[in-house]
């Protein structure tokens, strides 16, 4: 634990926006997008209102786990430049309020998802919240440099929940969507950690860059990117991948692999000389990577519906 102290705002009156910020809206947008993709590409269909309701529950559940994370990590958030303006370290919301808010919304979102869809989707959402708030935040984050590798599972589950909301099951296709995000998370976060190292160091979070150094992190990024390309290719074994996915997978994986090789070949002198230009570019590319892969899966589903193309 760090020894930072949170000074409560004199007036201590949180606005609505402060509570909304507890839900980590930026992370929530990724959750919403991938859950929506899982819901769209799932076989069969769902009533549009129920689909909307399910996405809303997944978004709220994901946000609730973010609030629980902010409750537990407020000491870390206090010392990191990137997070010190969050509602708890800035004194707008107390830790107790964040805990109550997170727990209430967690229970609420799981129950409502069950009522709207089925128990498989609800159980997966409950597991996602538990995994992020307990396994990642409480157990892994401060204990091991593999924190984001294992903890990434919680961020990878939303497409499986979206899928389960429609079908009520877990299949190879939904597991591969999970794996696509699961394997993408380490290179995504480690590339960020390469140029935000000081922040994690200050907060005593054992990021790979802090515990094993940047050389080792670059090696890890390359290995995980190669594995990721393998899982992206494995999607062709499912009925989801068509021509759109083929084009995106080939282009994006080639670009991502090239980026990982560039990072692997660079040393710290080169990176510092150009202010981590290649690392920042790789991080941006990683954002486009998941977005385009899931967009392609949805595009293929639409094309199949019009009789254009078909699964490989």
């Amino acid at each position: 634990m760090t020894d930072a102290t949170i000074v409560l705002d004199d007036n201590h009156e949180a606005g609505f926006g402060d509570y909304f910020a507890l839900l980590k809206p930026r992370v929530m947008s990724l959750v919403v997008f991938t859950a929506f993709a899982g819901l769209i590409v799932a076989p069969g269909g769902i009533h549009p209102f129920l689909g909307f309701f399910a996405i809303l529950c997944i978004a709220i559940g994901g946000g609730a786990s973010g609030a629980l994370n902010m409750w537990y990590d407020s000491d870390i958030d206090m010392v990191m430049k990137r997070t010190k303006s969050r509602p708890i370290p800035s004194g707008k919301v107390t830790r107790g309020e964040a805990l109550g808010f997170g727990l209430t919304l967690s229970a609420f979102s799981v129950v409502m998802l069950y009522l709207a869809t089925n128990w498989v989707a609800a159980a997966l959402l409950a597991f996602t919240i538990f995994f992020y708030a307990v396994v990642y935040t409480m157990w892994l984050k401060r204990a091991t440099p593999q924190n984001i590798v294992i903890g990434g599972a919680s961020g990878a589950l939303p497409p499986m929940i979206g899928w389960a909301a429609v079908t009520g099951d877990i299949t190879l296709s939904s597991v591969l969507m999970f794996m696509l995000i699961f394997m993408w998370t380490p290179p995504h976060f480690w590339s960020l950690a390469l140029f935000m190292n000081a922040d994690y160091d200050k907060a005593k979070v054992p990021m790979l860059t802090v515990t094993h150094g940047k050389r080792s992190t670059r090696n890890h990024i390359l290995v995980y990117t190669i594995l990721l390309a393998g899982f992206a290719a494995a999607m062709f074994a499912t009925p989801l991948a068509g021509w759109s996915y083929l084009v995106v997978a080939v282009v994006m994986n080639a670009a991502f692999l090239r980026g990982a090789v560039v990072l692997w070949r660079r040393n710290e002198e080169e990176a510092e000389a150009d202010n981590y230009k290649a690392e920042r570019a790789f991080f941006k590319l990683s954002l486009a990577y998941t977005f385009l892969h899931f967009m392609a899966l949805m595009a293929d589903k639409a094309l199949f519906a019009y009789g254009i193309g078909g699964p490989f």
């Binding site: 009156e13 926006g17 509570y19």
Partner: peptide
Amino acid sequence: RRRSRNVG
């Protein structure tokens, strides 16, 4: 801030 919270 209180108003925004109540309206929200």
